[in-house]
């Protein structure tokens, strides 16, 4: 028996919004420790890794490890049927071929349940090595979203250059070129507005704007985003999900031919 309850549907709606542009389906691996989803986008350029810790759910029961393959488009449709302040309970029997989403209004007067067929997905699991990144940038997630949106107008790809002075985002194409430089915040009044750079070595990497823009769909989940970079390895774009866990996007760099 698997049962996981959150007092508020909003967070789950935001999580679905953050993955559904990249992934059509995904396997939710449920265990004692929580729920994990790892999946590559269709073109195998990026990887989404979602972790939700069991102890942060309002109720969590997982008697046996369970892998539930879900169509994320269908799941998003179902979650749209929940009001933001509804309690959500996800339920499945062991070895079941369906999962049930139950929504309960705050006054307990409306209860709805939606059953969804599970899918058998033959998805590859990738082993992600622990990496000490040369540069780790923390910045406001809204600012990152804005930069990705603005620079995508100029080119399909964006160069991110990080030094100890700051981080520079550049794009150039037929229309012209764009550069956005962010200096490290000297005086941190509000932590969520800060730009903080931890640098071992300067890094310059090129990434496809299309994927970066897809990652920024997670912006409503967290005020800050963390970018981790090292030469010749995938960029990690991480959004914390309050005390529930995190979503990490890995993006393979563009390399010189």
């Amino acid at each position: 028996m698997f049962e996981a309850r959150l007092m508020n549907a909003t967070i789950l709606k935001k999580i679905l919004d953050a993955v559904k542009d990249l992934l059509n389906e995904g396997t939710f691996d449920c265990s004692d420790s929580g729920i994990q989803l790892q999946a590559m986008d269709n073109s195998h350029v990026s990887l989404v890794s979602l972790t939700l810790r069991s102890d942060s759910f309002d109720k969590f029961r997982c008697d046996r490890n369970l892998s539930m393959g879900m169509n994320l488009g269908t799941m998003a449709k179902i979650l749209k049927c929940a009001n933001n302040d509804d309690t959500v309970t996800i339920k499945a029997q062991d070895n079941a071929d369906t999962v049930t989403f139950m929504f309960e209004s705050q006054n307990h007067e409306k209860v709805s349940d939606y059953e969804m067929k599970l899918m058998n997905l033959d998805q590859e699991h990738l082993g992600i090595p622990d990496t000490d990144y040369s540069c780790v940038v923390r910045m406001p997630s809204m600012e990152f979203a804005r930069i990705c949106r603005d620079l995508a107008q100029f080119s399909e790809s964006m160069v991110i250059c990080c030094t100890k002075e700051g981080v520079k985002f550049s794009a150039s194409g037929d229309l012209g070129s764009a550069n956005v430089k962010l200096a490290q915040t000297s005086n941190v009044d509000k932590e969520e507005e800060a730009v903080i750079i931890e640098m071992q070595e300067p890094v310059t990497l090129t990434f496809a704007c299309r994927y970066l823009n897809a990652f920024t769909k997670a912006t409503p989940l967290c005020n800050q985003v963390q970018l981790s970079m090292s030469a010749d390895v995938p960029l990690v774009v991480e959004y914390r999900i309050s005390d529930l866990g995190h979503i990490r996007y890995y993006l393979a760099p563009k390399i010189e031919e």
Binding site: V45, E124, H125, L126, S157, L251, K254, I255, E256
Partner: peptide
């Protein structure tokens, strides 16, 4: 010209 690399080039297949 730069070329998009695939994510599987960087991570091991379990």
């Amino acid at each position: 010209k730069s070329k998009q690399s695939g994510i599987k080039n960087y991570f091991s297949t379990k």
